[in-house]
Design a protein around this nucleic acid. Structure first.
Lengths: 219, 219
DNA sequence: GTTGTAAATTAGGTAAAACTAATTATGTAT
DNA sequence: ATACATAATTAGTTTTACCTAATTTACAAC
């Protein structure tokens, strides 16, 4: 089912709003798109008719499965084009958004895949946002240092910033690797060292030098 | 003055039709765009209002100077994107037209120039059509073999296909170089040799092997 | 519980760009 | 010169995606 430029923008907006808020209200969409609420309700009815969203006043707008697939497809194209503009055409990362807003609506069966391959299948766009795969899956990414965690917060180790042998040996000795589940039990104010559990084993104390170099995927 | 998608398509179409026919009739535009004549006349009035064309029933549509600049800008973008699609994304030359039709309408001040530089400032698109420079100038190009000329046709030598020393020496001896003006006086059926003048000097007879390797710019 | 405000909705309207159907103008052939 | 076909034009309609203005609904404060 082909979609108009405007429908695509609504789907994309509903997707983004749904990530940050639990309810996607008509008002929120109107604000995000800088459209009149009266215009928005028309479009919501149209998208509902096409079964791309569900909508009612109390639940707000929710993407159906086909709606989410469509939204992710547009976001994928948007982010791939941003990579192209920055890496190939030498735009600055802050100049590319409005161009990608146009490019994301180019329709062609093969285009996203060919562009993706040409760019070397990047996982993140120039702003660090993950690029959905063609099946809609987002790459999970490690974006938060262990040192920034609060007490009782948990996460999964996604990458390490220090790749020196001594550091990696130390991690091995701790039984900590990519995928390990970490929970912070305590944070010591005076030197920022932490008491943590690794995969629910016995608690261990680690230094701030260590926690600064571990990047985790938050839940 | 910013232009709509549709206005841009009309300007482009009028430009192309103007190259092949002396009068660009309403009917011709309607056929080219597969639009109803009634729709076309509305748009012609709008473009006339904006002083991008002149139009009347007897003269047909004629681009004004700003109209032609706008048309060439769109054609430039179309052809640059075609080069991108074929050379960078590995599309076949016959698959790219409908994608370029969409990409040509992307608006950004710097985009065409950056794309042009990225592609290495190509002079021709994958179909061999010349890419207008940003100032609207078309590269002149040698596209026709002397062997394909008719009797009495004239042209200017643009390039040679055989760059071997013996061939170039032979040309020098004939006083023929890039820029020489050629006129065909006669074509001999039995071996396809030709009688030509070079820069209006005395007639000379040249073989088909020679005429096959000379590319000319037609008037 | 009444009231005030924000959100949602309805009703009706506009602009762009297309359409159909009817009409007028033009040009060519006999 | 008339008639016929083709081209140009007019009038009125449709669709998409917006809008404004008025109304209704929801909910929080007192």
């Amino acid at each position: 089912m082909k979609k108009t430029y405007s429908e695509e923008n609504y789907l994309k907006t509903i997707y983004h709003l749904g990530k940050s808020e639990s309810k996607v209200s008509l008002k929120a969409i109107a604000d995000a798109l800088e459209n009149n609420p009266a215009s928005v309700i028309d479009m919501l009815r149209k998208l509902k008719e096409k079964e791309l969203i569900t909508y009612d006043k109390t639940q707000g707008a929710i993407l159906t499965s086909p709606g989410e697939i469509a939204a992710l497809d547009i976001i994928r194209k948007h982010r791939l084009w941003e990579v192209f503009l920055v890496e190939k055409l030498n735009y600055d990362w802050d100049e590319v958004h409005h161009i990608a807003e146009q490019l994301e609506h180019i329709h062609d069966e093969q285009l996203a895949k060919k562009l993706d391959d040409f760019l070397g299948n990047p996982e993140f766009d120039p702003h660090g946002d993950p690029i959905p795969a063609s099946n809609g899956k987002m790459p999970v990414y490690a974006n938060k240092r262990l040192s920034e965690f609060e007490i009782n917060q948990t996460g999964t180790v996604g990458s390490v910033r220090d790749t020196s042998t001594p550091f990696l040996k130390y991690l091995k000795q701790l039984n900590l690797g990519l995928g390990s589940k970490i929970k912070v039990l305590d944070k010591l104010d005076f030197d920022q060292s932490m008491v943590i559990t690794i995969d629910d084993s016995e608690p261990k104390t680690v230094s701030s030098k260590m926690t600064d170099n571990i990047l985790l995927i938050t839940a």
